[in-house]
Design a protein around this nucleic acid. Structure first.
Lengths: 138, 138
DNA sequence: TGAAAAGCCTGAAGTGGCTTCAGGGTCAAG
DNA sequence: CTTGACCCTGAAGCCACTTCAGGCTTTTCA
């Protein structure tokens, strides 16, 4: 299977596949006489694994760790548990932040229902006021 | 006011301030004889404005647009409204994504309460199974 | 048979929003 | 007069890719 077919069958861009190879997340594939990459079902599996982990918001570094763990089937999976716990905490924190952000944005948007002139636009006035007052942002 | 004081009074790192200047988000300041930057209250205000917008998850490009709008006080603020509406939609979408992610992560974490051997760890087994089945991620 | 089109290759640079680093110059206090 | 705090510049590093330039291989079709 050539890189194009691998890309189509996984929905991953060709450039991304080559990037994962450079980053040592995918094993180096065989080559044809014309120097084209040749992939096995093993590659398909590993690429899907990577993408699924990415869809769970894991970094490539974390995926690398998980692949390492998978490669030593007799070890313990404590690492995996810790990694997931941390990830869960991160996502929870981010959701809380975004909820606050939603409130702020909606409140701000409420300040200008009709298009005003810039100099009297409630949104811009409030952005400036908040910038002056709120030092405790971020 | 030198860059250090500006940094302290806004909570923005010195390097970031210089970066904003390079990116033309802050006006070029005066200089002392010794080539030190000298800032005015106007700079403090604009820097706070930038940081407040950033805390609302706006990109520097969007902040640049807002600053441009502010500089033409007689124009209409339609741009601002559109920008905020878009931002609100983005954040809502991201929150929905993250909620799904929370569910998935928690479910996954539930599969391994005690540290197993890697080869029987429910989490790793599920990660592999999902990678095989779920093509519709991301 | 020959040429176009589709597919593949490499290495380098660009993206955003900074941060870090190397190697200096300036200025006030002791 | 030297120590230390403060400042300067330009370049490179971070992540997870994406884009680009320039060229090779293979297939297709007239």
């Amino acid at each position: 299977m050539q890189i194009g077919e691998l890309a189509r069958s996984t929905g991953v861009k060709i450039e991304t596949i080559r990037y994962y190879e450079r980053e040592q997340l995918l094993p180096v594939p065989q080559r044809t006489d014309g120097n084209y990459r040749l992939y096995s079902p093993r590659h398909v599996e590993q690429l899907r694994f990577i993408r699924y982990c990415r869809s769970l918001d894991m970094s490539l570094e974390e995926v690398r760790i998980l692949i390492g763990v998978l490669d030593t089937p007799s070890g313990s999976c404590l690492t995996v548990n810790a990694l997931l716990d941390e990830k869960i905490a991160e996502v929870d924190a981010r959701v809380n932040e975004l909820h606050k952000l939603q409130d702020q944005l909606r409140q701000l948007r409420g300040l200008c229902q009709q298009p005003d002139e810039v100099k009297t636009c409630g949104i811009l006035m409030e952005l400036n006021r908040s910038a002056r007052i709120d030092k405790a942002q971020i």
